[in-house]
């Protein structure tokens, strides 16, 4: 394996981990329900990369049998990730739909405000009395 290939492979791994952690961080740290979903999608995307990484074979070609080639990329990860992407889209769509419904029911998509509204007047009063929301 050439030096370029090794560096490329390390860089890919680094990218995967970076995207993964960044996505997870957004989910945890952000208060906005939509932004949380963005983070969640990033987190999932990193997994797509994780799977696709070993599918790539340098010098390989698309897995369509042809007498001119004898090195093919592994098709299985692509198939799997196609499924995962579909699942991810479903999750994102459902999450967004829930965010819309929450906006309709609560008038906000900031998580702390939503939670405070269900704590009733006492909760709201406490929130007002506190230094910051």
């Amino acid at each position: 394996m050439s030096l370029v290939a090794m560096l490329a492979s390390e860089a890919t791994r680094f990218t995967i981990v970076l995207v993964m952690v960044a996505g997870l961080y957004i989910v945890i740290a952000r208060n906005n329900l939509i932004k949380k979903l963005v983070g969640l999608s990033l987190f999932q995307s990193s997994v797509y990369l994780l799977y696709l990484l070993p599918g790539k074979i340098f010098g390989g070609t698309a897995p369509i049998i042809d007498p001119r080639f004898d090195v093919y990329a592994n098709p299985l990860p692509h198939v799997l990730i196609l499924t995962a992407i579909v699942v991810g889209i479903g999750t994102l769509a459902l999450g967004l739909a829930l965010a819309i419904r929450i906006k309709e029911a609560y008038g906000t998509i900031e998580e702390d405000e939503v939670l405070a509204k269900d704590r009733g007047p006492a909760g709201a009063a406490a929130r007002k009395a506190g230094p910051r929301g």
């Binding site: 997870l24 949380k36 969640l40 999750t91 459902l94 939670l115 269900d118």
Partner: peptide, 19 residues
């Protein structure tokens, strides 16, 4: 309406778990 919040929170946690 708290069902919506419960579903959303479960969606986040459940997706992280599945991932």
């Amino acid at each position: 309406r708290r069902a919506l919040v419960a579903a959303y929170q479960y969606l986040i946690v459940g997706t992280i778990g599945a991932t």
